[in-house]
Design a binder for these strands. Structure first.
Length: 801
DNA sequence: ATGAAAGAAGTTGCTTTGTGTACG
DNA sequence: GCGTACACTTTGCAACTTCTTTCA
């Protein structure tokens, strides 16, 4: 039951801003910015993947099932993610047609291209209407002409576009998590582990065999020593022949075709992985995975750790850097062999340089690949340059140091370190690698967010690039990770949580002015919003130097920031009023609303602002003797429930006003807000306020009203039914009469009947005489609410329906 | 190289209790 | 002359955001 959750979450994200489909002119937009317009709609793509609801239990393997065997072009899922619609077609994104594994059972009932995007279970009612969306799509993708030349770099993204970026980021995370889970599971593969164990001899492995009787120190040192021995052995045996995961970028070149680098990692399934274990080569990803498998085989508790290279939430002006160290020439996309390769010999891989097509590789039996190949002409392959990647790893491991129940980072390939957590974070300027989310997957496939262990400025910098910095982001991430989290935390988990919390708590105060902006813990006065104020008395907790040669600025706690509002604002938004004698804590110039206001007092008008502490809950004048006090507009402000006057009751029913009038009691329309249409705001009335003692009376009248309405509907239905019976009986009667008149030689009573009935049709069956003379018994009694007006087409209409 | 400041160019949020005309 | 239904209206400004450039 994982996928539907995500679909729902993404839908919620969409629904949370219904305005985003609002069809309004966007002043500056890149031509062909199709993904931006279309991306949202395509988030729907996740929904159909939902397995049938019969899978009730939290079957986590479902995730694996769904993402088990990505075919076609899954490499991009690892390296660069693109919104599904950027690809030539959906079917190409998730094409499972040639999949013959059991995994596709999950897909069988799935329609990947629903004509109308279906609503997710529990999807918000504010969901985008598909037709509406379609319209917008066409309009913007085809007709949008920027009012001026788009800025080359650093263009400003609209709210819509930014929302698409956010949703893309989320979707990317979900997909990558699923992908990681599959890959992590491969690291448990018995065949792979058995094979890899050959690398370490008995003596090497002895370090991992901990004797519980040893001292804590000795146990810890033994593990470390073992890792320090195994690392170099690994480095010497593993060869990097493919490119691993890179930092992801949104493509500037929106119309361009997506290309996968020819040297991209191409270990796509367990068979590939087993083969890589034998050949001991591949990308950094494969290297880390294989080393993970090896250490797990040695009996260690090992996590596969990935610094997720997601498409960013805030798309910057940076465009994708060129790959460095690519093959000089050669295909830009993996060559696909058009015909089935069942009987063809596998391509020669003995050079270790060739990157055969994905299609052909997946059919190679790993054992067969080891057999000596019959010599055959090999086409000259492009020479591969040395692959240049980030000097910091994207994949590495964490090994549980059993003695202290502590996870130690281990990287055998890039930094070649053991237990050096600060050697993993790349600088912000690294175009190949950005550290935003670091996830560790243990043997059981549980995911732990260990980002805090590796980042120096988690709160000041890293957090700003994560979903937690967006509204509702924390909850979203929690929900995404929930299916990947063990429900029974162990002591080790608790220890680690404390450790990670400690990293965060010990984070130093930022040294640059800009890092204070949006910092969850600190704030500078200069960054205060216009509706924010520092609590008095001010509590300075530090100083920071503003720029070089600048002066020192005081630093305050974020928790000391209070929201201020005008007296009117408190009243309208919270139903509170400023207490008597309170002095404003801040004063800001009033906004001039109208041109006609521009007299003297309009120019230096000011608005006094107060904190919540300075206000109390507003108490409306109470209802006395059934009289409801009204304001100058003759109604009652009811912006929040607390504004109902004492002794009164709010009846939020459309008919409440009418009901109160019928009863002849005093009432006031309840104004719950304003609708801004055109130049003027119009009061939104939701029901009325009456004296508490009339509550039941009013409700009774309303109910009676509703009953009457129901009765009306019921009567209409009854009449319809009776008419049908009448028609039937009339027909029968005619038939009876015609049959009675039958003469010799003329035996076509049916035809006569038909004619008679049709006749009846045309006359609109207003033949009351029938009812009066003979058919009276079929009509409702006169007390049944009287005779309802008969529609002109009523007679014919119901028979056709 | 890095960060601060200023400028540019866009987006967002606040605004907040109608009016005029045709017609029966 | 009065009451009712209905069409028309759909701002504009300042704050804010996010980028670039320039400078130290």
């Amino acid at each position: 039951m994982v996928a539907p959750q995500y679909a729902q979450m993404i839908n919620e994200a969409k629904a949370s801003n219904p305005n985003l489909i609002e069809d309004r002119p966007v002043k500056r937009r890149k031509k062909n910015s199709m993904f931006v317009e279309k991306g949202l709609g395509d988030v729907e793509l996740l929904e159909p993947v939902a397995p049938s609801s019969t899978v009730a239990e939290e079957d986590m393997d479902n995730v694996d099932g769904l993402f088990e065997e990505p075919k076609e072009e899954p490499v991009e899922g690892l390296e660069v993610f693109r919104p599904p619609n950027l690809l030539p077609s959906h079917s190409q994104t998730i094409d499972i047609s040639e999949d013959d594994s059991d995994a596709d059972a999950d897909f069988e009932d799935v329609d990947f291209e629903p004509a109308i995007p279906s609503r997710g279970p529990g999807a918000n009612d504010e969901d985008v209407e598909p037709e509406h969306f379609e319209l917008n799509l066409t309009a913007t993708a085809a007709d949008s002409v920027p009012s001026r030349a788009p800025r080359k770099k650093g263009r400003v993204f609209s709210k819509q576009e930014r929302l698409v970026h956010l949703n893309t980021h989320k979707l990317h995370m979900v997909c990558l998590l699923a992908s990681l889970r599959v890959r992590n599971r491969w690291c448990n593969d018995g065949q792979v582990q058995k094979r890899l164990l050959r690398l370490l001899n008995e003596k090497n492995r002895q370090w991992f065999k901990i004797d519980p009787s040893w001292t804590q120190f000795r146990r810890a040192e033994s593990t470390k020593k073992g890792l320090n021995i195994a690392g170099p052995i690994w480095l010497a045996n593993f060869k990097i022949t493919a490119r691993g995961m890179r930092r992801a970028y949104y493509d500037d070149d929106e119309g361009g075709e997506f290309r996968v680098s020819p040297d991209m990692d191409d270990v796509l399934d367990l068979e590939d992985f087993r083969k890589a274990a034998i050949k001991m080569e591949g990308s950094r990803i494969v290297g880390a995975m294989l080393y993970c498998a090896l250490l797990r085989a040695c009996g260690l508790d090992v996590r596969l750790v990935c610094s997720m290279q997601l498409l960013p939430i805030n798309a910057g002006s940076k465009s994708r850097p060129l790959l460095r160290g690519v093959s000089v020439s050669g295909p830009t996309t993996p060559v696909r062999t058009p015909t089935p390769l069942v009987n063809q010999p596998p391509p020669d891989n003995s050079t270790g340089r060739s990157i055969p097509s994905i299609a052909s590789r997946r059919r190679i039996d790993p054992m067969e690949a080891l057999e000596p190949q019959a010599p055959r002409p090999v086409p000259k392959l492009p020479k591969m340059k040395h692959i240049i990647e980030s000097p910091f790893p994207v994949f590495w491991l964490e090994v549980l140091e059993e003695a202290h129940q502590r996870w130690m980072p281990v990287d055998p390939l890039v930094s070649c370190t053991v237990d050096k957590r600060l050697k993993f974070e790349p600088p912000a300027s690294d175009v190949e690698n950005a550290m935003v989310y670091v996830m560790g997957l243990d043997t059981d496939g549980f995911v732990k967010d260990v980002t805090r262990r590796y980042t120096t400025w988690y709160l000041a910098k890293t957090r700003k690039n994560r979903v937690e910095s967006t509204p509702g982001g924390e909850r979203w991430l929690r929900r995404v990770l929930r299916p990947f989290t063990s429900r029974w935390p162990t002591d080790t988990d608790d220890i680690e949580d404390q450790e990670l919390l400690g990293f965060e708590q010990r984070e130093k105060m930022p040294t640059s002015i800009q890092d204070f902006k949006g910092h969850p813990r600190y704030v500078l006065e200069r960054d205060l919003r216009s509706n924010e104020v520092l609590e008095f008395p001010r509590h300075e907790i530090g100083k920071v130097k503003a720029g070089k040669g600048g002066k020192m600025e005081p630093v305050y706690r974020r928790t000391d920031v209070k929201i201020v509002r005008s007296a009117d604002g408190w009243y309208r938004h919270e139903g509170r009023e400023v207490k008597e004698g309170e002095q404003p804590v801040k004063i800001r110039p009033a906004r001039r609303t109208k041109v006609e206001d521009d007299d003297q007092e309009g120019e230096d008008a000011r608005v006094a602002l107060y904190t919540e502490d300075q206000t109390g809950v507003y108490a409306a004048p109470p209802v006395v003797n059934g009289r409801v006090p009204k304001n100058i507009y003759g109604n009652l402000d009811l912006y929040v429930p607390s504004m109902v006057p004492a002794g009164g009751v709010h009846i939020p029913h459309q008919k409440a006003g009418i009901a109160a009038r019928i009863l002849g009691i005093d009432f006031a329309d309840a104004v719950t807000g304003f609708e801004f249409r055109g130049r003027h705001g119009t009061a939104v009335v939701k029901g009325v306020v009456v004296a508490g003692e009339f509550d039941e009376a009013v409700m009774a009248v309303i109910d009676a009203y509703a009953d009457e309405e129901r009765q009306l509907v019921e009567d209409k239905r009854k009449l319809l039914v009776l008419r049908m019976w009448k028609k039937f009986m009339v027909g029968l009667r005619i038939k009876e009469r015609v049959d009675a008149y039958e003469v010799d030689g003329e035996d076509k009573p049916d035809a006569v009947l038909k004619e008679a009935v049709e006749d009846e049709h045309e006359t609109g069956m207003t033949s009351e005489e029938y009812d009066m003379d003979e058919g009276g018994g079929f009509m409702p009694g006169d007390d049944g609410g009287g005779f309802l007006p008969e529609d002109d087409d009523g007679g014919g209409g119901f028979l056709q329906d």
